[in-house]
Structures are given as structure tokens and as C-alpha cells.
């Protein structure tokens, strides 16, 4: 009995090592925060479209019956610039449909940005003051949301889209959603 008492620190130590080791081995990144809106509908919004005379873009529009991506971006963000070519290629291949949310950006700057890089987006909503961003729980751009056919958020990726993220996470998930 008395001996068992002296084993307690050892058990504690083993527990602690596992506690600390697991996140490293699992490749945990403390900066990444999953969306609080998983499996919930995209928060309602009604924002002007980037194209002049194109009316407004609304949240209901995202429920297209098939999975789509919603990409939150800005012209002032370097990783956003880097991921555009990849998205364009995927759109050209017909692999994805992407809506854009221009987060806290001058519409003119956004237009110039897309003029130089090309435009992968089906439509772009202008979130000038970032309020829709806050409703979505955006905390860093770029962010990419997978939206299912009913307009619910199924996944969020924070940071630049890379080929491996798209191929290993987004596309399999979209296939699964599409059934």
C-alpha cells in the first residue's frame, strides 16, 4: 500500500509525457482553430457583388444543391495571391466551384488584384467592414470553407490552399458530401 503511494509520481510522469507527446506526433498546430459553425448554415448575409451592376450576393445563393467552396481573401494578403493560380486550375478542370468573400478590401484593389492574377471565383461578395467575416468566425485570411448543397458549413481550412490540402482534404470531403 505504502509502496503504491510512491508509484504515483511515476504514473503522473507517464501521463504527462503522453499528454505532451501526442500533439507533436499528431502534427498538432496550436494556431489552427476549427470553425465554430461546423454543420451549421452559413450565417445570413446580403452583400454587394464586386462586379458593378451585378446586384448582391446572398448567403442563400451558396446552397446550390452541390458542394461549393467559399474563399475569404483580400488583395493585401500574400498567401491569397499565392493560392489563386491553384484555384484557377481547379475551376478550369471543373473540379470545384468557388465563391469569394473580399474581406476588408477596397473594391478597386480587389479588382486590380484579380485582373493581374485571373479570377477563379463564380461570384464575389464585398465585405468592406469585415462584419460578415466576424459572423463566419474568420480570424486570418485566407480561409476556405466547404459548403454543402444545403448551405451548411462542413469544413474550414485556415491559411494558404496547397495542392495537398485540396487533394487530400477538400476534394475527398466534397465528393463524400455530393455522395
Amino acid at each position: 500500500m505504502r509502496r503504491l503511494f510512491f508509484l504515483l509520481p511515476l504514473l503522473g510522469a507517464l501521463f504527462l509525457i503522453g499528454w505532451l507527446g501526442y500533439p507533436i506526433l499528431a502534427g498538432h498546430n496550436p494556431q489552427v482553430l476549427p470553425s465554430a459553425l461546423l454543420d451549421k448554415p452559413v450565417p445570413a448575409f446580403d452583400l454587394p457583388s464586386l462586379e458593378e451592376g451585378d446586384g448582391s450576393v446572398t448567403s442563400t445563393e451558396l446552397a446550390t444543391g452541390a458542394p461549393v467552396l467559399l474563399n475569404v481573401f483580400a488583395s493585401w494578403c500574400a498567401p491569397c495571391r499565392a493560392e489563386i493560380p491553384l484555384m484557377r486550375r481547379l475551376v478550369d478542370d471543373g473540379a470545384i466551384t468557388v465563391y469569394g468573400l473580399a474581406y476588408k478590401d477596397e473594391p478597386k484593389a480587389t479588382r486590380d488584384f484579380l485582373k493581374t492574377l485571373g479570377n477563379p471565383y463564380k461570384r464575389i461578395a464585398v465585405d468592406r467592414n469585415g462584419r460578415v467575416g466576424i459572423d463566419l468566425g474568420v480570424y486570418g485570411v485566407p480561409e476556405t470553407y466547404v459548403i454543402d448543397g444545403q448551405g451548411r458549413i462542413r469544413y474550414r481550412h485556415v491559411g494558404e490552399l496547397t495542392r495537398s490540402v485540396v487533394e487530400e482534404q477538400l476534394i475527398p470531403l466534397m465528393r463524400e458530401i455530393a455522395g
Binding site: 509520481p9 511515476l10 510522469a13 509525457i17 505532451l20 507527446g21
Partner: peptide
Amino acid sequence: LFILGLLAVAIVGSFILFA
């Protein structure tokens, strides 16, 4: 992981000795 390994050796080793 390397430092965790060192931490593990130090505390597990010394606590075994302690027990």
C-alpha cells in the same frame, strides 16, 4: 520530440528510482 525524450528519461528514470 527530442527535448520531450530528455524530459521523459529524466522524470521517468528518476521517478522509477524514487518509487
